[in-house]
């Protein structure tokens, strides 16, 4: 059968929070969620290094055992966490371009060859002025060995890989910084998935 053409993507515009950003959707954890608590913080910056104050960041991740809450992740031996969906949303601050999530560190997820990938978070970035969703991944600086053997990171040119690794900022729970540079020197790697 002939393939149907896709409906074109359009910008989320400056007013997406009316429809897409509910209170508290950047907090994925609640009492009883298993796993190590983390806080992901960062700024979205444009090609001049100025904060993007109207960006929407969506987070999709596996639970602490590395299982996604999704019917196509049928690995029943890794239980789902009833208190954890793995999805969150954050809008950047208008003046600061800052976003943050409170979540847990995900467990490792297998790649198509059956090897474990390094733990990572998946982000979808959209803003006024972006016409298509931008996909990227956040890797953890304290997983050096796993990052070395990660199938997806290996597909990224070596000199750009560090844009996908969060910067540790200490703290308890652990804070990781992941700034998203939409353009220019040090542009974050965006993935064609």
């Amino acid at each position: 059968m002939a393939r149907l053409g896709e409906t074109p993507s359009q910008t989320v515009g400056p007013f997406f929070s009316i429809g897409l950003s509910g209170e508290g959707e950047n907090v994925l954890v609640s009492d009883g969620v298993a796993g190590d608590r983390i806080r992901l913080v960062g700024r979205v910056l444009d090609g001049d290094g100025r904060p993007v104050g109207d960006a929407l960041i969506e987070l999709w991740q596996a639970n602490s055992l590395g299982r996604y809450r999704h019917p196509d992740d049928a690995r029943g031996e890794l239980p789902l966490d009833p208190a954890f969906t793995g999805f969150g949303r954050a809008a950047t601050g208008f003046e600061t371009g800052e976003y943050w999530f409170e979540t847990i560190k995900p467990g490792p997820v297998p790649d198509p060859e059956g090897e474990l990938q390094a733990p990572h978070l998946n982000l979808i970035v959209q803003a006024r002025g972006t016409l298509n969703p931008l996909f990227t991944r956040v890797y953890f600086p304290d997983e050096e060995e796993a990052n070395q053997s990660d199938l997806v990171l290996a597909m990224v040119p070596k000199d750009r890989r560090e844009t996908l690794v969060a910067v540790p900022e200490g703290g308890e729970p652990a804070v990781y910084r992941f700034d998203i540079h939409l353009q220019g020197e040090g542009q974050t790697v965006f993935l064609d998935i």
């Binding site: 596996a62 996604y68 992740d73 997820v109 790649d111 990572h120 998946n122 597909m155 965006f190």
Partner: peptide, 8 residues
């Protein structure tokens, strides 16, 4: 960067 599709 084009990548393979994994469970993610």
């Amino acid at each position: 960067v084009s990548i393979v599709q994994t469970l993610s």
